[in-house]
């Protein structure tokens, strides 16, 4: 998407915000950086927006992580990292929340991951049904998603996999991790689908489909982590209830975070990159169940 050209064509404030939101949900850190380099030609309001996005990326990590975006489907984006051929790299599968983002614009979230250690697959449910009905037009359910990924991605290159889901994507991440043999699957402020305020679907939605899936999946070594911000009470309750329904899962308290979905709170504490590397890529969880930013 040529954001500069499209911003120039926006006739109304609402058009501009629509475009900005779309860009926030799609652009990689490098694309944001490139856009920032052209910001002088943008109207003031959009220049402020690009400045803010670029500053968010730089605050998380320097240099900009060179993920290259490739759309596999309208709501399925693959971000290829920079690991040289033959070097170990992980596949990170990210399940976005209700606003189709990981509680931050996508670029800053990706900037929290080292591009030389992983590729990232970002999934957004356009029907906002928390992936209970799979990904419309791509995979009918999570087992079909696992099969589809095995076809679309070069799985042989990966030395490991990890899943992460924010908010309403959290439960899907926990269900999907064992399906692809992930080392760790992390729910960030997630909740059981039974408790989610989902839109009315055209066909009945089984809110217990992930429970049935887990029951029918051979036991895997995946560590299942229900993380929540220490000071966000609703996430605390929801995450602990979710953990009670996911056998073998563990609760991870993120100290000093008071925002829903953990990610934005980690950003505020300048700890997003360290959290993602330690917990998601290294699978290193604190013995006492509390992660300190």
């Amino acid at each position: 998407m040529d954001v500069v050209a499209e911003l120039a064509r926006c006739a109304t404030t609402a058009d501009r915000y629509r475009l900005q939101i779309e860009a926030e949900n799609e652009l990689s850190p490098a694309e944001i950086d490139a856009l920032h380099a052209r910001a002088a030609g943008l109207p003031d309001a959009s220049r402020d927006w690009v400045d803010k996005l670029a500053a968010m990326c730089r605050r998380i990590r320097d240099p900009i992580q060179p993920f290259r975006r490739r759309a596999l489907a309208p709501e399925v984006s693959f971000f290829e990292g920079s690991a040289p051929p033959g070097a170990p790299r992980a596949l990170v599968v990210a399940f976005a929340g209700v606003a189709k983002r990981m509680m931050l614009p996508l670029g800053p979230f990706l900037q929290g991951l080292p591009a030389d250690r992983c590729d990232v697959l970002v999934l957004r449910d356009p029907d906002r049904l928390a992936f209970l009905a799979g990904l419309p037009g791509y995979a009918a359910d999570l087992p079909a998603l696992a099969a589809r990924i095995a076809t679309d991605l070069p799985m042989a290159r990966y030395s490991g996999a990890a899943c992460i889901g924010a908010s309403s994507g959290g439960a899907a991440a926990l269900a999907f991790g064992p399906l692809i043999g992930a080392g760790v699957a992390v729910s960030l402020g997630g909740l059981h689908p039974r408790g989610m305020p989902l839109r009315h679907a055209a066909t009945p939605i089984d809110r217990y489909v992930f429970d049935a899936l887990r029951a029918g999946t051979p036991k895997a070594a995946t560590r299942l982590v229900c993380a929540h911000g220490e000071d966000f009470l609703r996430d605390c309750v929801r995450s602990r209830l979710l953990a009670m329904t996911v056998p073998g899962s563990e609760v991870l308290v993120v100290r000093g975070v008071a925002l829903h979905g953990v990610v934005a709170g980690l950003f505020q504490r300048n700890a997003l990159a360290r959290f993602l590397e330690e917990v998601l890529l290294d699978g290193t969880l604190p013995a006492d169940g509390a992660w300190q930013p």
Binding site: I21, V98, A99, R101, M103, S168, P197, H260, G261
Partner: peptide, 9 residues
Amino acid sequence: MELCIWMQV
């Protein structure tokens, strides 16, 4: 977008 998330969640 944060307001959208808050309204739903």
